[in-house]
Amino acid sequence: MTRTRRPSAQTVAVLQALAERPDDWHYGYDLCARLGMPAGSMYPILIRLADRRLLETRWESESVSGRPPRHLYRLTATGRAYATANAAATSTTIPATTNARRSAPPRLGSA
């Protein structure tokens, strides 16, 4: 029997941010800025989501001079369903930083 752990509030926040525009590809740093979450918390979440095949990743195909190509993230179909399932259950437990950011949300970067 496989036991599924309930995701953390931070994970749910990341899922929701990704699910708001599920067809768009998102940058890691923009997700950090949007959710007020440090990279040290954001990337482990993204890594775990990708490990569980809830998140698909790709590198930027368009080369931009002066900077390396960036990594992009988007929920898979399974990830979207997972995000929807968890959104209602944990909507009241999103961290205060996330709610604070929501009062004046910067535009989420997407590709």
Partner: peptide
């Protein structure tokens, strides 16, 4: 996990 490392380095540039 090396690819994730490269991803974070690329983000630092931004």
């Amino acid at each position: 996990r090396r690819e994730w490392g490269q991803a974070m380095v690329a983000e630092l540039a931004q």
